[in-house]
Simulated scan of single mutants.
Amino acid sequence: MKPLKEFTIPFVGLKEGKHHFDYEIKNEFFEYFEYEDFNSSDLKIDVDFVKKSTLLELHFEVTGTVNINCDVTNEPYDQEIENSFDLVVKFGEAFNDDYIDILILPHGEYEVNIQQYIYELIVLSLPLKRIHPGVEDGTLDSDILNKLEELSPKVKDIKKDQEESDPRWNTLKKLLTDK
């Protein structure tokens, strides 16, 4: 997969100190990664880049919304996203990205590509279970919710089943209480 040019930071020409990069993320970015869970996205990425003599420090912050489908009703809704991530780039003998927040680049490298870190930051910012806010507060009227309510077991039905147990078990139940 060829890296996207706009997410490559050539740090050789930068002076030591703090630099700032802004990125606007739309669905085209996720199409590159073949990630199709978002109906639409409107995200802003702020990257604070600190160049030091022996290493680079990057601080990512993502804010915005993505339009996704609810796991319960499959209704689309806007999910707010807000998250941050810190990355340290060191220099060594060979490329190594085994660690979560440390990237080792070989000596002589002159640029760093951050597209994978941005992608992971956004995708991992989503909740595990995506529930439409209308489902949580009861304001969403959906055919799926009505069908789920219709098919769910009723509390009084459960109590009836417990009361109508087989009388042969009554003697064994006494053993539980006779200690």
Rank of each mutant, 00 (worst) to 15 (best):
E164H: 11
N96P: 03
E93G: 14
V123S: 07
V62S: 14
N69A: 14
D97Y: 02
L43D: 09
N146I: 02
L14E: 06
L103E: 13
K129Q: 13
V112T: 04
E136D: 11
E136S: 13
I9S: 09
V50Q: 02
D42S: 10
K179C: 01
E28A: 10
V155L: 10
P3C: 00
P133R: 08
F30G: 12
G108R: 02
K44A: 13
Y23L: 15
P167V: 03
S142N: 15
F49N: 03
H107D: 13
R130C: 06
D48A: 09
I68A: 06
E163M: 03
E16L: 01
F85C: 06
D37V: 08
K18Y: 04
D178S: 15
I158H: 00
P133W: 03
K18I: 12
I100A: 14
Y117D: 15
E16W: 04
K15T: 08
K51P: 04
E34A: 07
E31V: 05
E24F: 08
T63N: 15
S53D: 03
N67H: 12
L55R: 11
P153K: 06
T63Q: 15
L145Q: 07
Y23T: 01
I118T: 04
K52V: 05
H59P: 04
F11G: 13
K5P: 00
V155E: 14
H107K: 12
E150G: 04
E6G: 00
F30Q: 10
K129V: 10
L151A: 11
D48P: 02
E57C: 09
D101S: 12
E149V: 10
D42C: 05
I131V: 13
E16Q: 10
P133E: 06
P153C: 00
V12H: 01
E149Y: 11
F29Q: 02
K154Y: 05
D86R: 01
Y119H: 14
V12W: 03
P76G: 07
Y117P: 08
S142V: 09
S142L: 13
P3Y: 12
I100L: 11
Q115W: 05
V123M: 04
F29K: 00
I68R: 05
D98A: 11
Y99E: 13
D101A: 06
I131D: 07
V155I: 12
Q116T: 12
V135W: 00
T139F: 08
D101T: 02
G108N: 08
F11P: 09
Q79T: 08
V50P: 00
K160N: 05
E120K: 07
K179V: 00
K156I: 00
K160A: 07
F29A: 04
E136A: 13
L4D: 01
I100E: 14
L124K: 05
L55Y: 14
C70S: 15
P153L: 08
G92T: 02
F38G: 01
R130S: 10
E34P: 00
P133L: 04
I104L: 04
Y35A: 09
V12D: 01
D22V: 04
Y99M: 12
E136F: 03
G13P: 06
K154N: 06
F60L: 14
